[in-house]
Computed example of a mutant assay.
Amino acid sequence: MGLGRTDIWQTGLLHRPMPDILRAGTLADVPVTWLPDPGPFRFIADPFGIWHDDRLYLFAEAYDYRVKIGRIDVFILDRALNVTAHAPVLVEPWHLSYPVILRDRDGSFLMMPESGGSGMQRLYRATDFPYRWQAVEGCAFPGPMIDASPLFHDGRWWLFHTPWHERERPRVDTLHVAWADSLAGPWHPHPGNPVRRDIHSARPGGTPVAMDDGTIILPTQDCAHTYGGAITPLVITTLTPRAFAAHPLPPLAAPAAWRPATDGMHTLSAAGPVTLVDAKHTSRSVIRRAGVDIRRMARELIRRTPR
């Protein structure tokens, strides 16, 4: 992001199931309901959701440029997609984002947010859904990961991700795969890793979906022109512990009707009858952004100064 350029993401709910959107290959004319604007220099992004007791629990990254560290919030919506409650549910000393939400075999709720700043990938279990979460001990993930996207398929778990420690290249053009018999691991890296290098269609951007024809479609991010410029559906035709084959479909871009949030899109996730999405507009207000950054640095300096 260049000097004075500030990405502001907003989260919406598309009134159509994700497989239907992927088959149509366009977001045009799909009705969308947007979450409320959190205010200047704040955004809500990386939405994932799950239905429970006739309510949609939407988890997302909540980010404030005044703090520059993400937390996980929950939005509770009724069947009419009205927000009935909103609260922060997971805060750590490190940045959190991309809160994939799952159900375990025993019915409990699991969350797998991006947590690479802690030095490892973490898995959380709800102790009081949706408000309280506890880290699951003993998980054997293959190191810290970016945008880890799990899928249970053919009797085992698969994990699509970009490695956190991708030093020699930007963290936007590499796809790795791992598999395990249990979500907690141990995870086995695919021998073909990286299975894909492509700035248009490698870094995950949402929930993998098993289609009726037996293929898997993984939303990936097209970052050729900007971070999170569009979603490229990646059709995975071969997925075994030793083989991988895939090809991209044309990218899904933010429609003009979403203006001003037409500068990018980097999450597409399934939630039953609706599909969750985020889209961005890029603010170019150098002076206002500089003011936010200066005040943040001043607060940090005061906090670190011995008294």
Rank of each mutant, 00 (worst) to 15 (best):
M1W: 14
G2W: 07
L3N: 13
I8C: 02
T11N: 03
T11F: 04
P17R: 08
P19Q: 11
R23H: 13
R23F: 11
L27V: 10
P31S: 11
L35E: 01
L35N: 02
F43D: 02
I44W: 01
D53H: 08
Y57D: 01
V67D: 05
D73G: 08
V74D: 01
F75T: 02
R79W: 10
R79Q: 13
R79D: 09
A87F: 07
A87Y: 12
S97F: 05
S97Q: 08
V100D: 00
R103A: 13
G107C: 12
M112W: 03
S115D: 04
G117I: 06
M120D: 10
R132M: 15
Q134M: 07
V136S: 03
A140V: 15
A140L: 14
P144R: 11
M145C: 09
I146L: 09
A148P: 05
S149R: 00
P150A: 10
P150N: 08
D154R: 13
R156H: 07
W157V: 04
W158I: 05
H161N: 07
W164K: 08
E166W: 11
R169Y: 07
T174G: 03
T174M: 06
V177D: 04
D181Q: 13
L183H: 01
A184D: 08
W187H: 05
H188Y: 09
P191N: 10
I199L: 07
S201I: 01
A202F: 13
R203Q: 15
P204V: 12
G214W: 05
T220E: 06
C223E: 05
G228R: 00
I231L: 10
P233Q: 08
T237R: 15
F244D: 02
A245T: 12
H247Q: 14
P250N: 09
P250R: 06
P251Q: 08
A254M: 04
A257Q: 12
R259L: 13
A271R: 00
A271V: 03
V274E: 03
T275F: 05
A279V: 06
V286M: 14
R288I: 08
M297Y: 14
M297K: 14
M297R: 15
E300K: 11
